[in-house]
Nucleic acid binder design. Structure first.
Length: 819
DNA sequence: GAGCACTGC
């Protein structure tokens, strides 16, 4: 794998791909085949660039909540100084000779001199990060307080530096304490020693770990037993026995809590990007609040330090969230200060006074000023308005300076793409050219990558993006942002039991985020296609995901970690009672809960699986139907776990081609068996899977994820003794699938996702009697069968069932009767 | 004959 090797060298040399001096190298990087690696690197390079130019003396004030938009300018002299620094660093560490010496040293378990040199050089850059002067202040605060809320704006260095500030603190050393177990016996347990930093995304966790390992001069993760920095994400964990700083996804931390609810490994948990407010971060914060404000029995009274970090956090609600935890504990006498098992040292008395205090810290980031321009009047057609603004900028503003336009979806992106290209034809030839680049998730990877390539000379890039560009992707060269003020958002409607995808106004913090994209490298401008008055009426922050999604997963997660009564769980934002009840009922219906509301053994098994509750239930039902059925169901579930295994067809011509190519994979029983046929054919292809995928118009990238999930699920099923060993599985692998058994397994988890045909030929849901149409992407589209079962019920322009198979009414009856 | 932002175990 020369490419991977190459990648690693590139990644570890602290290079800055954005500089002219190393341009040729950048080109080489972009050509690497693996899109994931490419993406990670792309991001990291951007990040480095930001970090290395972040040299302004910051303003830090405690307990200040203010407009996160304020930005400051950097002195260009300092900036160029720093670039020189980085160049020296990178030049020293590129040769393969060094690298192999490195590797040898790593094998011996000693940090190599090159690693140390590199760390030393990086230290010069770290010193200039806005957060750096606050190291002592942060350390002092955390000696006193167990909870800290930290607002660090983009580029402040919080995610990389804080773990390093804390790693050598005395409270961060492992301690052996006596813990009373459930059976009443006392046991010696080692508590603490490690710092966890959670991230919402996998790429972020891995690239931060890599960066911090470089800065600390230690090898990364499992490459050496002496490594002090590691990471843990799904499909990829890299830690060592001496890991002190561990980056992990929120989901991974929740998974660890399943086996270790007291997080005994950790002395501190840093929760990063709290403002994104995904469901997992809300759950993590709830569990952490319970630990910090409780007696910490399972930790022998040893405190756990919690730092919630974010770019634009709603600090007031976080502050009252944690304070409420301490207040409740004090009033009921369950707080840590009452622990009398002698595990705490003399600091105990000091802690007593400080109990309930939450430190707040605000650190300015480094952003260039961005001027905001509103439309004087409300706009009724933002595509049209965007077109005008784009050409206004293009005609008026000097080069360089690319334009990033935020739109709502593929449809508006493509409409504007057409208009801009059309308009550009009649443009004054004296003007620079324009290059229009669409960017949305459904776009093939190669097309997405085009936005990262520099524009040809005398050409302005115009990137038309969905909110993929808000968090997931960073593009350099942007000086102008055009923001339509809207986004498509998914909302789960409890009463109807369906997901709706609707165009909605964005929040103020999302608008600020979008605007910030113009000020990464130089002063910029942001054109908002709405009035200032409209801006002021926007919601402050994004609606937390926990208010917008089906809660069954979250509740199962809680119950499996010992929260019996969800009413007592500290929600940062409490979901409406109705939503909680509906989710409880759903879990009860699939036998994940007992009538008392306690989690059942089925529920516990489901909670361990990396699947939604209904899919987990399906897997267990399939296990009851024998290993043959289970293996087939794993294949189907794996493809349901990735968004779309079939490539999107754009043109009419391609559509026919695709249909022909996929004909041998299609099954009349429906989408589930079609997916099974596809996964099995792909897996059976031993020579060139990529070519096979191309021939069948199947996404190779998606199939690679399918294979990852499939492997994870079979491994877990084997550990849970639901599947026999690999050899036995191999011998049954060639058996013909049994469609009835497979579909009946699915009905166990999806009995309420069924509809029957009515005389006019449409389908009505069996529970609720709502009209539902088969989604055009389904192989059953336009077909009429007795009844259908579906995995998803979504509302866009009308109600659609997606992931559809034909079932018989009496099967549905059987399962519903069994409930 | 429709069209779908983004994560995560």
């Amino acid at each position: 794998m020369p490419e991977k090797l190459h990648t690693r060298f590139e990644d570890s040399d602290g290079d800055d791909a954005g500089k002219t001096a190393v341009r040729p190298q950048k080109k080489e990087q972009v050509d690497v085949a693996d899109p994931v690696i490419k993406e990670t690197r792309e991001k990291k390079n951007k990040k480095r660039k930001r970090e290395e130019t972040a040299d302004v003396k910051p303003n830090t004030q405690r307990v200040v909540i203010r407009d996160g938009e304020k930005s400051r300018n950097a002195s260009s002299a300092q900036e160029s100084d720093q670039k020189r620094d980085v160049k020296e660093v990178s030049n020293g560490f590129k040769s393969q000779k060094h690298q192999s010496k490195d590797q040898k040293m790593i094998r011996q378990g000693k940090p190599s001199s090159t690693l140390r040199e590199k760390a030393r050089a990086l230290y010069e850059i770290r010193k200039k990060l806005p957060i750096f002067p606050h190291a002592d202040e942060i350390r002092q605060q955390l000696k006193k307080d167990d909870v800290m809320l930290l607002v660090g704006e983009t580029g402040s260095g919080k995610s990389t530096q804080i773990p390093q500030f804390l790693a050598d603190e005395s409270w961060c050393r492992p301690k052996t304490v006596k813990v009373t177990e459930e059976d009443g016996k006392q046991k010696d347990v080692s508590v603490g020693g490690c710092i966890a930093i959670t991230q919402p995304r996998r790429v972020a966790a891995i690239s931060l770990a890599r960066r911090v390992a470089d800065e600390m001069g230690t090898p990364l993760g499992s490459s050496s037993p002496a490594s002090r920095v590691g990471y843990s994400v799904r499909f990829d964990t890299s830690t060592s026995p001496s890991t002190k700083v561990k980056y992990l996804t929120e989901g991974m931390l929740l998974q660890e809590m399943l086996h270790d609810p007291w997080l005994t490994k950790y002395s501190a948990v840093l929760v990063d990007e709290v403002h994104e407010r995904g469901v997992n971060v809300d759950l993590v914060l709830g569990f952490l609040r319970n630990i910090v404000s409780g007696k910490k029995e399972g930790r022998g009274g040893i405190p756990l330090k919690v730092i919630a970090m974010s770019a634009t956090a709603d600090m007031e609600s976080l502050l009252s969230f944690f304070k409420e935890g301490f207040d409740n504990a004090q009033s009921t006498g369950t707080d840590g200060t009452n622990a009398s098992d002698g595990a705490l040292d003399h600091q105990d008395s000091e802690r007593d006074e400080k109990q309930g205090q939450v430190a707040v810290c605000h650190i300015k980031g480094r952003q260039f000023p961005v001027k905001t321009i509103y439309t004087p009047e409300p706009v009724h057609d933002f595509v049209d308005a965007a077109l005008k603004v784009i050409f206004q900028i293009h005609c008026k503003e000097p080069m360089p300076g690319d334009i990033l336009v935020f739109l709502t979806g593929q449809e508006t992106v493509e409409a504007l793409e057409y208009l801009v290209n059309d308009y550009a034809i009649g443009m004054d030839p004296a003007l620079p050219k324009v290059q229009v680049l669409p960017l949305f998730a459904a776009l093939p990877q190669a097309a997405q990558q085009r936005v990262f390539q520099p524009a040809p000379p005398r050409t302005r890039k115009i990137i038309l993006a969905t909110n993929i560009a808000e968090t997931s992707v960073t593009i350099s060269g942007i000086r102008f942002v055009v923001d339509c003020g809207k986004a498509k958002m998914k909302q789960f409607r409890t009463r109807l039991g369906l997901d709706s995808l609707l165009v909605k106004p964005i929040s103020k913090s999302a608008a600020i985020q979008r605007k910030g994209r113009a000020g990464r490298e130089a002063p910029g401008q942001c054109y908002r296609l709405y009035t200032e008055k409209d801006y002021l009426t926007l919601q402050e922050t994004n609606t937390p995901e926990i208010l917008r999604c089906d809660l069954s997963q979250a509740i199962l997660t809680m119950k499996a970690r010992g929260v019996d009564d969800i009413v007592d769980f500290p929600f940062l934002t409490r979901p409406p009672r109705e939503a909680l009840e509906k989710a409880l009922l759903q879990l009860f219906n699939i036998q994940a809960l007992e009538e008392s509301g306690k989690i059942s053994s089925i529920g516990l098994q489901i909670a361990k699986l990396p699947l939604t509750a209904p899919l987990g239930r399906v897997l267990l039902a399939a296990a009851q139907n024998g290993p043959n059925c289970l293996l087939d169901v794993i294949d189907i579930i794996s493809s349901l776990s990735v968004e779309n295994i079939f490539l999107n067809t754009t043109s009419e011509e391609k559509k026919e081609e695709a249909e022909k190519a996929r004909r041998d994979l299609f099954r009349r029983e429906g989408d589930h068996l079609t997916m099974l046929a596809t996964v099995q054919a792909y897996a059976a292809e031993n020579t060139d899977r990529k070519a096979w995928a191309e021939r069948h118009m199947v996404s190779h990238r998606a199939m690679q994820s399918v294979m990852d999930v499939r492997k994870q699920l079979t491994t877990q099923c084997r550990q849970a003794k639901l599947l026999p060993d690999a050899n036995t599985c191999a011998s049954i692998a060639n058996n013909q699938p049994d469609p009835v058994l497979i579909l009946k397994s699915f009905l166990t988890g999806f009995a309420t996702n069924t509809a029957r045909i009515v005389p006019d030929g449409s389908y009505r849901t069996i529970v609720g009697n709502q009209t539902v149409a088969i989604h055009p992407s389904s192989v059953l589209f336009g077909k009429k069968v007795e009844a259908i079962m579906y995995n998803e019920f979504v509302f866009t322009n009308r109600s659609y069932a997606r992931g559809v198979s034909a079932v018989q009414m009496d099967w549905v009856g059987e399962v519903l009767a069994g409930q």
